[in-house]
Design a protein around this nucleic acid. Sequence first.
DNA 1: GAGGAGATCGTCT
DNA 2: GACGATCTCCTCT
Length: 208
Amino acid sequence: MFASSTTLRPVFFNRDPRQVARALLGKLLIRKTRGGMLAGRIVETEAYLAQGDAAAHAAAGKTARNAVLFGPPGRVYVYFIYGNHYCLNVSCLPDGIAGGVLFRALEPVMGIAQMAKARDIEVEDETDLAKISFLKKISSGPGRLSEALGITRARDNGKNLTSPRSDLRIVDDGYRVRRVMVTPRIGIVKAAEHPLRYFIAGSPFVSA
DNA sequence: GAGGAGATCGTCT
DNA sequence: GACGATCTCCTCT
């Protein structure tokens, strides 16, 4: 499957996070597991900038926690939040300049039953797997999509998303997004006014 | 359906 | 020692 798709290369991520956040919409996030392949279409992202963005983890400078954001583009940055959740990001811009994109929501595409199990969501019967109300519970939110794909800081932080052999990567399968909406970011206090949240207009799988 | 509070811990001050 | 790029459950309407 996805025979005609191509893995996104480092150059895709080597630019302004706002461009990357917008361009990632419609791409497929793919996770290879022992139990099979999981995939979701990216429907919602947020950009976190290098300079002058008080909400970004990189705002206060480089630390052991956020070092990946300062590294080369196309690397996985995972952080743990509220004592409960992991959030998945990808680094942008050249080595030495911080910046990243947070993945906020996916439309489940492949391995849906396995993702539901990872989220501890019960499948009543086979028809559930095609219901929007059911699919929304799987990966419409940063913590939710990370849990569905089994993302953890110990396992994935620093991983190269752009290697075709990686167990976590992003591919372009030719899907074309019709219209993109831009709004302020969610769940932050500092620099909350900037319109840096991007999502596919009309998608029922975006968060909130 | 909306709104509020608790969970729970790594990270930085 | 405080707080956070969240989620879920519970209560009230």
